[in-house]
Amino acid sequence: MMDKNTLRKLMKEKRKNIKPDIRKMMDEQMYNNVINSNLYKNAKTIFIFVSYNNEVNTHNIIKQAIRDDKTLCVPKVISKESGMISIQINDFTDLEHGAYGILEPKEYCSKINPKKIDLAFVPGLAFDKNGGRIGYGGGFYDRFLKLIPKNCPIIGLGYKIQIIDEIPMDENDIKLNNLITD
Rank of each mutant, 00 (worst) to 15 (best):
K44M: 12
S82W: 15
V77D: 04
T45G: 05
I78Y: 11
I48E: 10
V56T: 09
A65C: 06
I35G: 01
T58W: 01
D69S: 13
I61E: 03
H59C: 13
N53Q: 15
Y52A: 05
T45W: 06
F49Y: 15
L72P: 05
T45H: 09
Y31D: 09
V34W: 00
I48D: 06
I66L: 03
M26V: 10
I46K: 03
R67V: 07
V50Y: 06
I48W: 09
S51Y: 08
Y40G: 00
N57W: 05
N36C: 07
N60Y: 10
N42K: 13
G83M: 12
D27Y: 06
Y31V: 05
E55Q: 10
E55A: 07
A43N: 04
N60T: 09
F49I: 10
S37H: 01
M30E: 05
F47E: 11
C73A: 10
M30Y: 03
V77G: 07
S51E: 05
V50D: 07
D68L: 01
K76Q: 12
N42I: 03
N38S: 13
V74M: 04
L39E: 09
Q64C: 01
I35S: 02
S51A: 11
E81D: 15
N32C: 13
K80C: 06
N60A: 14
S37F: 02
N53L: 14
V56F: 03
S51C: 10
Y31F: 14
N42M: 07
T45N: 07
H59E: 12
V34P: 04
T45P: 07
N36P: 01
V50Q: 04
I78V: 14
Q64H: 06
N57P: 04
S37I: 03
T45K: 04
K41E: 05
N54L: 09
K80A: 13
K76G: 01
N36V: 06
K63V: 08
N32M: 13
K76H: 09
I48S: 12
Y31K: 12
Y31M: 12
D69P: 05
I62T: 06
Q64T: 02
S51W: 02
N57Y: 05
N42R: 12
V56M: 01
T45Q: 07
M26W: 08
I66C: 02
N33F: 05
N32T: 11
N36K: 11
E81R: 14
A65R: 03
S51G: 08
